[in-house]
Simulated assay, not measured.
Amino acid sequence: MGKKSQRWLLLFLYLSGLFHCSTAYVFWTALVEISYEKSNNVTEDKICECGVYGRNSPLDGASGIVTLPMGDPKGCGSDPFYNRNSSFPPWIALVKRGNCTFSEKINAAKRRGAAAVVVYNVDGSGNSTTHMAHSDADDIVAIMIGNTQGMEVVNLVKNGTDVFMLIDVGSPHGPWMDTYWLYFLSIAFFIVTAASIAYFAFISANRLYNLNIHRRAEKRLKSEAKKAIRLLQVRTLKIGDEEITSDSHMCAVCIESYKAGDVVTVLTCDHIFHKSCIEPWLLERRTCPMCKCDILKALGVEEETKEEISAQSPPEVTVITVTGADNMYEVPLTETLSPDPERHRYDNRAFEGDSEAAR
């Protein structure tokens, strides 16, 4: 993962609120490159990602000639002496851990004009490092390196060799930045995404299935409604019919009075409507517009359909629970009970004995 993408990931964590809870665990490594000339005028270059930026250090690069404090290698005290000043090319202070706080070491070197401060670990710690906290010195690049590497540079400088050091930003590490966690988060993201897609696919398929069932049910009901409509009485109004002579009679669907020659349909509830008005209505609603009478039920069409469905279903069996002694039994009633005690006996003999004793 490149530095740019890593910084974008940090920005994402910050915006998502995860940065605040993970800041204490995230740290950045530093790329440390040293360059010096050997006795045979051959330049030696060494580079490793072996430094760790201080918690309060800016994530910037730095470069310069490595310089040691005179006398105390730990660089403590209010004004330690370095054999360089700000008039020389940029230089980097290399100090040993111990005796005073990291902030004191860093500020002392900064006052002398150091471009950056490199702290190497105590003796016997190998190449291990720790996370420096230096809240009082947060405006200068400060990193820590291991004791082995630090002593190698110290010996070169003490022997009169000019060592040029280049510091650059490495990679973030921590619970949200380690490669393992990035893989874990990526896999978790794809699992959640796949599960979400599967869930929405299931919901969509279920909705389509229910919609298909609803359409088939509507189609079946329309078919039944057509059968019922064919069973309804149809009349042609003539002059002298009550529906024409009375002003109180009008079609409740189109709200128009009846005229001679109009073809009307008489529903099972005796309400009359224009045939061309009521038939589309019945196909959609199957009830009288005035009294809500269900024509399918009134004509028995729906009952026939229900009977066809129930004929395909298994018969219902009534079950009673019989209790006796410490056990419970479920007894199906598959026939009408007879008063003959010899035909119907209890499966639980203990219960049967209790019943006979009660008699």
Rank of each mutant, 00 (worst) to 15 (best):
I191D: 04
T43P: 00
S196K: 10
G2D: 14
I320G: 01
R7T: 04
N107R: 11
S204D: 07
I140F: 07
C251G: 13
K96D: 13
P69A: 15
L211Y: 08
F351L: 12
E44G: 00
P289G: 04
R235Q: 06
M177E: 13
A115T: 13
D162A: 11
G146A: 10
M1K: 04
K158F: 07
K46Y: 03
D347E: 08
F202Q: 06
M151Q: 13
R207Q: 12
A30C: 14
D136L: 11
L9F: 10
E308R: 12
F202A: 12
A298V: 04
N121K: 02
L296A: 05
A93D: 12
I92V: 15
F81P: 00
C291N: 04
P89H: 05
H131N: 13
S86Q: 08
A62F: 01
I213M: 01
D326W: 14
M250V: 01
E49H: 08
Y53E: 01
M1E: 13
K226C: 05
T318E: 04
K227V: 12
I191R: 10
C293I: 03
I272F: 01
V263S: 02
E44R: 04
D60H: 09
I167A: 14
E308W: 07
S338T: 12
Q233R: 05
D178F: 15
N147P: 02
T265P: 03
H271P: 02
K238T: 13
I167W: 09
E352M: 10
A217D: 03
N147A: 14
C21I: 15
A137H: 08
L156C: 06
V192P: 01
Y346D: 02
T323I: 11
L296E: 00
C291G: 05
R111H: 07
A142S: 13
I255W: 10
R220I: 07
K38Y: 01
R345M: 14
A228C: 02
R343S: 11
E330M: 07
G146F: 08
S248C: 05
S22P: 03
M165V: 11
I203A: 10
V169K: 11
D138P: 01
G75M: 14
Q149H: 15
Y180D: 09
S128A: 15
E44S: 04
A260D: 00
G71Y: 02
T43D: 01
Y14F: 07
G324K: 12
C291F: 03
R97S: 10
Y258E: 03
C291M: 04
V263N: 02
T130D: 03
M132L: 14
K74I: 14
S57H: 05
F200V: 13
T336Q: 07
E342I: 11
I295F: 08
A198K: 03
S5L: 13
S257I: 07
N147L: 05
V52A: 12
C251N: 08
S5N: 08
D262E: 00
M144Q: 10
Y53R: 02
I140S: 04
I203G: 04
P315Q: 06
I320C: 02
N206H: 11
L182Q: 10
C76P: 01
C21T: 14
H344C: 11
V319R: 03
S39L: 08
Q6F: 15
N121P: 03
S5G: 07
P332G: 10
I34P: 00
D241K: 00
